[in-house]
Amino acid sequence: MDRELILDARDVAYRYPGAVRDALAGVSLALRAGAFHAVLGPNGSGKTTLVRVALGLLSPRAGTAAILGRAAAAWSRRDLARIVGVVAQREENPFPQRVRETVLLGRFAHLSLWAGERPEDHEAVSRALERCDVVPLADRWLWTLSGGEYQRVRLARALAQEPRLLVLDEPTASLDIRHEMELFELVRALADRHGLAVVLITHHVNLAARFADQVLLLAEGRAVARGSPAAVLTAETVRRVFGWPVAIAPFEGAPQMIPLRSGKDGV
């Protein structure tokens, strides 16, 4: 456990302007290289806010957020982009773009103002395209891609940043089973083989349980439970947080959740 501590957010609290309650009320998240943490919780539980505070996009009203031992807010966006790659929830480009062009934007923080792309930039792009298995798509327009291909391309752009921490915000929200599994396996492999630290925000409790080392369960801006999937994902906790009765059964060593029928329809 002496791998380098990359992300260290401690007891951070945040309230959006005009809101009556804290979106985040004292949550911690710490990651070392090679660790894969999943952040789970209902809509509005503070998952995305936690990431924004941890990456210095929002300043916490309490607590501290540090990256590689330095306050998140003290990093310039440019320097931080060389350490943290993010696949955000939303993105919309009003102008059409090709796959290689968008992945090349991942090199933005490595490029100087006037100079063109260097050979190492193109190499980083090629590596990222390969790792995400999207080399054959390189010359396609983004709007011709399927949902799964598009998410892999966005992951490739984050990898082109050559980050040490990868943050994914609901990357499989609209994907079918195959593409979802491919993405989770890819991200797990990046953590195992390349030592990337991974924070994954998701609604997929079962996949988080099978792929992540650690799970952080949020509800109403608070950490309800944290730890190994088996420790966190008990039937009682999941029912309480998500407001629905569930059964938990182990599968290949990971707890798997089965939502129960409510029994209101005549039972």
């Binding site: 990456l55 996009l57 966006r77 440019r78 320097d79 931080l80 982009a81 060389r82 943290v84 790659g85 993010v86 955000a88 939303r90 993105e91 934007l105 991942g106 933005f108 923080a109 752009r157 984050a158 940043q161």
Partner: peptide, 8 residues
Amino acid sequence: EPARHLGA
């Protein structure tokens, strides 16, 4: 937001 994450 994506632009900030990319370093702008």
